Deep mutational scan, measured.
Amino acid sequence: KRPMNAFMVWAKDERRKILQAFPDMHNSNISKILGSRWKSMSNQEKQPYYEEQARLSKIHLEKYPNYK
């Protein structure tokens, strides 16, 4: 399994927050909201998630050096 990208790292927690506020919301609607919110974020706001992506990718590479 591939490591999560920056959007997926961010969306994991955000999806949970949306589901708590709107438990009956369909997954497709949540995904649209998440995509819209991510697009509206500045690069500075996204930076911690890109850093986490890099950390996860490094761990993945160490654990699975032959993964293609």
Results as ranks from 00 to 15, higher is better:
Glu51Ile: 03
Leu56Ala: 07
Ser57His: 14
Gln44Cys: 06
Ala11Ser: 08
Ile30His: 00
Leu56Cys: 05
Lys12Arg: 12
Met8Phe: 05
Ser57Cys: 09
Ile30Cys: 02
Ser31Phe: 09
Glu62Tyr: 05
Met25Lys: 04
Ile33Glu: 07
Ala6Arg: 06
Asp24Ile: 01
Lys12Val: 11
Lys63Tyr: 05
Leu34Val: 01
Val9Trp: 08
Asn66Ile: 07
Val9Tyr: 05
Lys39Gly: 05
Pro3Thr: 09
Ser36Phe: 09
Ile18Ser: 01
Lys32Gln: 10
Ala54Gly: 07
Gln44Tyr: 09
Val9Met: 07
Ile30Trp: 01
Trp10Val: 00
Met4Phe: 06
Gln53Gly: 08
Phe7Tyr: 14
Ile33His: 05
Arg2Ile: 14
Ala11Thr: 00
Tyr49Met: 00
Tyr67Asp: 15
Gly35Pro: 03
Ala54Phe: 06
Tyr49Lys: 07
Ile33Val: 06
Gln20Lys: 13
Ser57Leu: 13
Phe22Glu: 12
Leu19Pro: 02
Ser31Asp: 15
Gln20Pro: 04
Met41Pro: 03
Ala21Tyr: 07
Lys63Ala: 12
Asn43Ala: 13
Gln47Tyr: 04
Pro48Gly: 06
Ile30Met: 05
Ala21Ile: 13
Lys17Met: 04
Lys68His: 12
Met8Trp: 04
His26Ile: 10
Ala6Glu: 00
Phe7Pro: 02
Asp13Cys: 00
Ser40Gly: 09
Ser28Asp: 14
Ser40Trp: 11
Arg15His: 05
Glu45Ile: 02
Ser57Asn: 13
Ser57Gly: 09
Tyr64His: 14
Tyr50Asp: 03
Tyr49His: 01
Ala11Asp: 02
Asp13Ser: 05
Phe7His: 04
Arg55Glu: 06
Asn66His: 10
Lys12Leu: 07
Lys1Glu: 12
Gly35His: 04
His26Gln: 12
Arg16Ile: 14
His60Tyr: 11
Lys32Tyr: 06
Ala6Met: 01
His60Val: 08
Gln47Gly: 06
Glu62Phe: 01
Asn66Gly: 12
Lys39Asp: 14
Phe22Tyr: 14
His60Phe: 11
Lys12Gln: 13
Lys1Asn: 13
Lys68Pro: 10
Tyr64Cys: 13
Tyr50Val: 09
Asn5Phe: 01
Asn27Met: 14
Arg15Glu: 07
Ile18Lys: 00
Ala21Met: 10
Glu62Thr: 08
Met8Gln: 15
Leu56Met: 12
Pro23Tyr: 03
Lys12Asp: 08
Trp38Gly: 00
Ser28Lys: 14
Val9Leu: 15
Ile59Lys: 14
Met25Asn: 05
Gln44Glu: 15
Ile33Phe: 03
Asn5Tyr: 01
Pro48Cys: 04
Val9Asp: 07
Phe7Leu: 02
Ser31Ala: 13
His26Thr: 14
Arg16Trp: 06
Gln47Ile: 07
Lys17Asp: 01
Lys46Asn: 03
Asp13Pro: 06
Lys1Gln: 05
Lys12Met: 11
Ser28His: 06
Glu52Trp: 00
Met4Lys: 09
Gln20Val: 06
Met8Gly: 14
Ser57Val: 08
Arg37Ser: 05
Ala21Asp: 15
Lys39Asn: 14
Asn5Leu: 01
Ile33Asp: 01
Tyr64Gly: 14
Lys32Arg: 09
Trp10Cys: 03
Glu52Pro: 01
Lys12Trp: 04
Lys46Ser: 03
Arg55Leu: 03
Lys1Pro: 15
Arg16Glu: 14
Glu51Ala: 12
Lys12Glu: 11
Lys17Ser: 06
Asn5Arg: 02
Trp10Thr: 02
Leu56Asp: 06
Met41Trp: 02
Glu45Tyr: 00
Leu61Ile: 11
Ile59Asn: 13
Lys58Phe: 05
Ser28Tyr: 05
Gln53Met: 09
Lys17His: 05
Pro48His: 04
Gln44Lys: 12
Glu45Lys: 02
Arg2Glu: 08
Glu14Pro: 00
Pro23Asp: 03
Phe22Cys: 12
Gln47Lys: 10
Ser42Leu: 02
Lys68Asn: 13
Ser57Ala: 14
Pro65Gly: 12
Gln20Glu: 15
Ser28Asn: 11
His26Tyr: 04
Arg16Val: 14
Ala6Ile: 00
Gln53Ser: 15
Asp24Gly: 11
Phe22Leu: 06
Arg16Lys: 14
Tyr50Ile: 09
Ala6Tyr: 02
Gln20Thr: 11
Glu62Ile: 05
Arg16Ser: 12
Lys63Gly: 11
Arg55Ser: 07
Glu45Trp: 01
Glu52His: 03
Ala6Thr: 02
Ser57Trp: 07
Gln53Cys: 15
Ser57Tyr: 09
Gln47Asn: 05
Ile30Tyr: 00
Asp13Phe: 01
Met4Trp: 06
Lys68Val: 06
Leu34Pro: 00
Gly35Ile: 11
Asn43Arg: 13
Ile18Asp: 00
Ile18His: 01
